[in-house]
Write a protein that binds this DNA or RNA. Structure first.
Length: 567
DNA sequence: GCCGTTTTCGGCCCGACTGTTTTCAGTCG
């Protein structure tokens, strides 16, 4: 029984308890236990006393032990006996919670999506007390798309929408300040919806402007302070919260979450005899304090500004001393992975170089694809030499900056490398990566990676797993082994900052940092505007608690070159 | 169900919106 299964079982139990109308705190306790396990980076075999973990007590520990020893949970089995298995999925229907579903089951015998649909069609649902015609209609409508709608959306899709919405909000005169909030602001890989906080002294006008400018399928809620719509794009939900200027900082904090982070903050407030809400901090005498910024809000409790990316609800409060050292965008001195028109990029060498200078970087590496990747117009050794001349020319014209000559070289399906040692030794920086034969068995994939890692000329492995968030898992390498090899041979592993990838993922980045393997955060830009991915990349790295010292492209050119030579 | 050294009982974050209600329950984040 692995950890994932245990977490899933605890969450299943919570769902069933919800349908039983159990005490909400008891339900939350099972979810909290599941989350506590998830946050703990150890594997089950490394944990000797589970009750020592905060949030796991006698009851939940018994379930876990049962699972570990017997491979099943008596508690869950009993619940499943008692409650039809068609009911828990109904909790996913918007507007239906445990109590309503329990009532449908007890009074109408509803035990599945199908029987719920029949009950609605016969008008029985509307007749129940506490239900009505509107509720029945809404359920029927939701049932039509039940099981088809994506529950979460990948960050790269939401990023496009947020960019568009930012433009739209900029145009509304009555808005004084706004920001995206929610899990997107925390740089979660996938989110359910998008949240925006808007400061305005004229909410009526803003609401009107919003509803006239947005292209939505449906308005879900439209109150004085909250407007919620389903966008045309993929039916993605966006919530807008309208607050006064004074309330903006606390509202932004509140709606950025996470939920558990807020719970911790409120506990702290309580210890001070205060009460936090989205509108400010209420004092014992009823006065409400507001703040100019989130920084000021945190400072009220003698806390440093906790970046949204690490507001997970636990760990961050134990690691406050590490916050100043967390990697941030301004630490970045270079981008080590980008493409030009020589292969499949959209801009010339000198244009990418100039864009890096505009970013304020000290150096950068041009790393076009190698000859194997024909679809991307990969470079032969001859073309590489020609490209180097262009790079040298650029450096002569820009003495304050250094453009290095590199490659993103393919690791071929048979495990050989696309360039021989002589070609590689001519280059300043050699990236090796896999772009083909993803479905090989793990053993073969690892053989290919090993071949690259042990070659003295290879400096870095790019997007080490090949995943695309929400779309494909990649080629499934044994990452702990990969990290061990990177350590052994002194290689860099990449955090590819393209929001499609974010590869390595958080957990693996933490693992790599613990092992002392250096990380490079690179945009893999194929066009100038993609250099902006460095921002999401550094934020994502914060989630793995990476520090400046872990990241090679925060180093000066001199330190970087020294590292490459002696590694 | 979990937690706690002023606690082993009594809390557990707080508020908006909707749809059902004549004052509030359920859901949601």
């Amino acid at each position: 029984m692995n950890k994932k299964n245990i977490i899933h079982t605890l969450e299943q139990i919570a769902l069933y308890l919800e349908l039983k109308g159990e005490n909400p705190f008891k339900i939350a306790a099972f979810r909290k236990a599941a989350q506590a396990l998830e946050t703990d980076t150890r594997s089950m075999s490394e944990i000797d006393d589970i009750t020592a973990i905060k949030g796991i007590g006698k009851g939940t520990a018994a379930v876990i032990t049962d699972l570990l020893e017997n491979g099943r949970s008596e508690v869950l089995l009993e619940l499943q006996n008692e409650i039809p298995k068609g009911l828990p999925p109904l909790l996913k229907l918007p507007g239906l919670g445990g109590k309503k579903i329990a009532k449908l089951y007890k009074e109408l015998g509803v035990d599945s999506a199908e029987s719920l649909r029949v009950a609605c069609e016969e008008g029985k649902v509307a007749a129940l007390s506490g239900f009505g015609k509107k509720t029945q209609d809404k359920i029927m409508k939701e049932l039509e798309s039940f099981g088809e709608k994506a529950e979460t959306h990948p960050i790269w899709l939401l990023d496009e929408l947020v960019t568009q919405l930012n433009v739209l909000l900029e145009e509304i005169q009555e808005i004084d300040e706004f920001s995206v909030a929610g899990s997107f602001r925390r740089v979660k890989e996938q989110s359910k919806d998008i949240d925006f906080i808007i400061a305005t002294e004229n909410p009526v006008a803003v609401k009107e402007a919003l509803l006239s400018k947005l292209s939505y399928q449906e308005i879900i809620a439209s109150g004085d302070t909250k407007i919620s719509v389903e966008l045309q794009t993929e039916g993605i939900q966006v919530d807008f919260r309208l607050v006064s200027n004074e309330e903006y900082a606390t509202a932004l904090h509140h709606f950025t979450g996470s939920k558990d982070h807020n719970v911790r903050m409120r506990q702290i407030a309580k210890e001070h005899g205060e009460k936090i809400s989205e509108y400010g901090i209420e004092q014992q005498d009823g006065r409400v304090l507001t703040f100019d910024s989130e920084t000021a809000f945190f400072a009220h409790y003698n806390l440093p500004f906790i970046p949204p990316t690490v507001r997970m609800g636990g760990k961050e409060f134990d690691r406050l001393d590490q916050i100043p050292d967390l990697i941030k965008l301004s630490d970045i001195q270079a981008d080590l992975h980008m493409h030009t028109t020589w292969s499949d990029g959209a801009y010339a060498v000198h244009e990418m170089g100039q864009a890096l200078i505009d970013k304020g970087y000290q150096y950068g590496v041009i790393t076009d694809h190698s000859q194997y990747l024909k679809v991307a117009n990969g470079l032969t050794p001859e073309r590489l030499k020609l490209q180097r001349k262009e790079i040298q020319q650029f450096n002569r014209e820009h003495p304050e900056f250094t453009l290095l000559a590199g490659t993103e070289m393919d690791i071929l399906p048979d495990g050989s490398l696309d360039f021989d040692d002589e070609v590689m030794s001519d280059l300043d920086f050699v990236i090796a990566s896999i772009h083909s034969s993803f479905s090989q068995p793990q053993e073969k994939i690892m053989e290919r990676l090993h071949e690259a890692l042990k070659n003295p000329h290879v400096d870095m492995i790019a997007h080490p797993t090949g995943r695309i968030i929400g779309k494909r898992d990649g080629y499934n390498p044994d990452v702990p082994q990969l990290i061990a090899w990177a350590k052994e041979y002194g290689k860099i592993l990449e955090l590819n900052a393209n929001p499609y990838r974010l590869d390595l993922c958080m957990e693996h980045l933490e693992m790599a940092a613990r092992a002392g393997v250096p990380i490079a955060i690179n945009t893999d830009a194929h066009a100038i505007d993609q250099l902006r991915f460095m921002e999401v990349g550094t934020k994502y790295a914060q989630k793995a608690w990476l520090k400046k010292e872990n990241i090679v492209n925060t180093w000066s050119l001199k330190d970087f070159m020294t590292y490459l030579q002696k590694k």
